[in-house]
Every structure is written in C-alpha cells, then in structure tokens.
Design a protein around this nucleic acid. Structure first.
Lengths: 252, 252
DNA sequence: CACTATTTGTCCGTATGTATG
DNA sequence: TCATACATACGGACAAATAGT
C-alpha cells in the first residue's frame, strides 16, 4: 500500500529526491544548458518535470541559492547568476569540491612528488593520529597560465589505504581523488592566514624571499567525522584572492 | 475569512513567523538560556511553544544550522554547538554582524580618527561613486588585551548623511552603527588576501616592517543593492585567523 | 489607474522513513 | 522491540512582488 510508483524504479535508489533535482539543475548550469543570467523553469514546471512536490523542488533550489549559483526574484522567476566564473566559496563543501575540480582543469602542476613519511606533530594533531604515524604526502607547485600561483601539500593517513601515484595527482586534485576512491567527504575546517616566503618557497614560486603569501590550511572530514586529509597551501597574494559573499538569511 | 488567530496580534506584525522563532532561539543561545552542548526543545515542542507548524520551526532551525550555531542529530535532538566562542563566519551576514559586535565588546581601539575627505579611486569604485566624491573615513587600531591585532579603515559615502563621532566609534564598530542608524544591511563581498607591513603600519601595529598581514577588504550593500560601506583592514597574521567551516548540504 | 496572470514566499496538516537509545 | 526525534515528502492555501493589459 505504499504510495510509490511501481512503474519506474530504475533511478531513485538511496539519494533523496531533492538531491536528484539539485544535481540535475546544477548540471544544467555547469554544462551550459542554462547560461548565466538566464531564467530557469518555474518551480511548478520543475515539479512537473521531475514529478515531485513544490517542497522538494524548493529544497533543491534552496541549496543552489545557498551556493550562490542562482538567485530568486518574486514575481519574476529563478535566474542563473551572472558571474558564475568566480562564484565565491560559501560555507559549502560541494562548492569547494567543484571549485577544486575546476581549478584542477584550468591549472597545471609542477615539481610534484609523492612520498610516504612519518607525520610531524601538527599533521598528527590535525588528522587525530598518534605520534609517529605514517602518512602519504603529496606536494606540488600549482601553475596558472604557466606561472606559479601557489605551493600545495596534502597529507593522508597511511592506514586509510588509498594510494596515489604521480599520474593521478597531475590529473586531478587530491580532494577529488579521495571522493572517487570512495571516501565520503562530509565537512572541512579551513583556516586562512598570512605568511612570508622563505628561501625554498621563494624559489619554487619564483618570487622574492619575504613576499606575502596567503596561507590556507584545510582539514577534511568524512561522514563519520574522521579526518581524512590535511592540506597546507601557500598562495602568492597577488595571484590568489579568497572571495566570500555574505547574504542575510532573515528578512528585516 | 483569513485563517489568522484573532486573539493574539500583539507580536507578529510584519516579519515572518520563522524569523521570529529564529530570533527567539538565537537569543536563547546568545544569552545563555541554552548553553553550548545543551539540547534544545524538540521540533514538536517548539511548534507548540510558538504555535506554528513543523515547517516553520524547521525553517528557523535551518538558518541556525547554516549559521553553525546548532547541530541536528536524528533520533537525539538539536544541540547548541560546543565552540560557540569562535563560531566560524559562514556566508552569512547575520553571523558577521554578531561577530563584529562581539569583537567590539571584547576589544578596544586606539589611534582612532574620523575625517571627511575626497575618496580615492579604489574607494570610488567599490562604493560606486563618481570620481572626486566625498566620503567619511574612520580608522583605528584594534587592540586585544592591550596589544594591537589590526588596523581598520572604513569609508562611508558622505551623501549617505549618517555622521559619526569618535565616541560612537569607540563604543561599537561601524557596521553595527550603520544598522542602528537605520541602514538596511543586506549583503557584503569580502576579499581576503595577504600583504606586508609598511613603515606606517609597522609602527601602528607595533611590529616589524615586512611582517605578514592578513588583508581583509569588505564592501557592504543595503537591501537596494547600493554600497554603503567599504572596509579595509590589515591584521597581524599571528593574532588573527580567518576560520571557515564547510559542510555538505546534499547527502551521499 | 485598476485589474489580472504569473511566480516566488510563507504556512498549514499529514504521512512515512531513518537513526538513536 | 519500542518510543523518540529528526529527515523527507505530499497536497493545499493564501500573501506579496512583478509585469503586462
């Protein structure tokens, strides 16, 4: 006596309906079916298209609004944002994953290396490992248009047993590789600070010793709240800006 | 034939019900009625308390979750987060306003000055003003425990006609003053970068020339999408970290 | 200017699924 | 096993903003 349609069961296994609507619309936006500034189908139309209720459709659109991909205008419709290119990173993991993926496609890497080593104190702390634990470390210089923009090091616990080689890492960033290898990424803590280029970094980034660098440290957690990756990056301040868009969620 | 209760009309004018529930619960958290880690009333209880439906209660809680003030655990309840003190800034204006307000209470200012001046090119651009427009500029060194942590300059268009004096600015940050003077703050764009201390900043911040600084630039917009304030700040990298917590909004 | 249609915003009641203890 | 509490989802309703007639 369930109210589920018995005819179509192919899709819809596991993931909630609103997530499916969300992914579909998001893909429309990213693959260009709906270009920046264009109007999406109305909520009612989306309901019909996907065979879901308005609540479900709105929940999917809520996520896209939170991510800054679309804006809603009462009486007019829902529109893809104009400046999709540099959409800001909000407090959203999905957004970070996409941004990292695009970064991986638009940039290249140099001086890459992968080693297994004993974790230092700070890495142990961030990854909740006992002192002396072993980690896989991957590091590289990231290039934009052939010029270095930053130096990135990532640390993954050795016991996680996901191995990477240089070819994989050249193709796509660690965060995306982890996802593809079945790690259920759920959240992350990011701390942004500033630092100076020391001799080694200055050489790698082709800048002067003492140049200002934006330091980004990121600890990624899976759905069981276990840390799965630590990332430490230093970006050239002139080349890399961290952009955040803040919006009020309550009226008045 | 409206379905509104005719008995109680005291409150509830204008702002949506979910916003009222949101404010009430948020106040419970901030004034200590519900301490970090404690469990909030269940959704059903909140529905009864405020006389609203589950949808309304959940929408209010959704906002608090987005802001990182509470976490939900199926089967257990909704809990105030443990580390309320340094709750991260997500992409939320409300959060920024609260954070700024707390900053104003826990810190002090020095070397403050207020002047009216001609806006430089960058300020004109950010505030969408014609070249040569006049702005009110306020700047000060912000101190934590008596030690400088950053230098902050704010610019407000002169034609906005909200005047500030030093006493007001010593008492609370510009952003809160604007709110209180009736400016409807709606959104902001924040760009974070890194820079070095020049001679003037080094003296003001009691550090060495060339010390790494975290540079924060903020442009605040009102509900009509007009820029109302520009802020440029430089914080000592050791003293000030920008913390962002990222969460996945779609399951799987 | 009023009127209407469209579209998003808010809100209700209800039902079922899933995780926790 | 069972009750509790959050997660998802349906249908329906009216308000408010917008754009066109």
């Amino acid at each position: 006596m369930s109210s589920q349609p018995e005819g179509s069961v192919d899709l819809a296994l596991r993931s909630p309906r609103y997530a499916q609507v969300y992914s579909a619309v998001r893909d429309w936006i990213y693959n260009g079916s709906y270009k920046p500034g264009s109007r999406l189908p109305t909520e009612s139309e989306l309901c019909e298209l996907f065979g879901v209720s308005r609540i479900t459709t709105r929940k999917a659109l809520d996520i896209l609004v939170d991510e800054g991909l679309v804006v809603r205008q009462p009486g007019r419709g829902t529109f893809v944002v104009e400046d999709l290119a540099d959409a800001p990173v909000l407090g959203d993991m999905e957004q970070l994953l996409l941004k990292v993926e695009r970064l991986g496609k638009n940039t290249s890497v140099a001086s890459a290396e992968v080693t297994e080593m004993e974790a230092d104190a700070e890495t142990c702390k961030d990854l909740a490992l006992p002192p002396g634990s072993r980690v896989q470390r991957a590091s590289h210089v990231r290039l934009l248009n052939g010029r270095p923009i930053g130096y990135v090091s990532t640390f993954v616990p050795a016991q996680l047993d996901v191995r990477f080689d240089l070819n994989e890492l050249n193709a796509s960033p660690m965060l995306n590789l982890l996802e593809r290898k079945g790690v259920d990424i759920a959240s992350a803590d990011q701390v942004i600070s500033a630092t100076l280029a020391d001799a080694r970094l200055a050489t790698l980034l082709d800048t002067a010793v003492g140049a200002p660098l934006l330091q980004v440290r990121l600890v990624v957690f899976d759905t069981k709240r276990q840390p799965v990756e630590r990332l430490v990056a230093a970006y050239l301040a002139e080349q890399y800006h961290h952009h955040v868009h803040l919006t009020r969620k309550t009226p008045r």
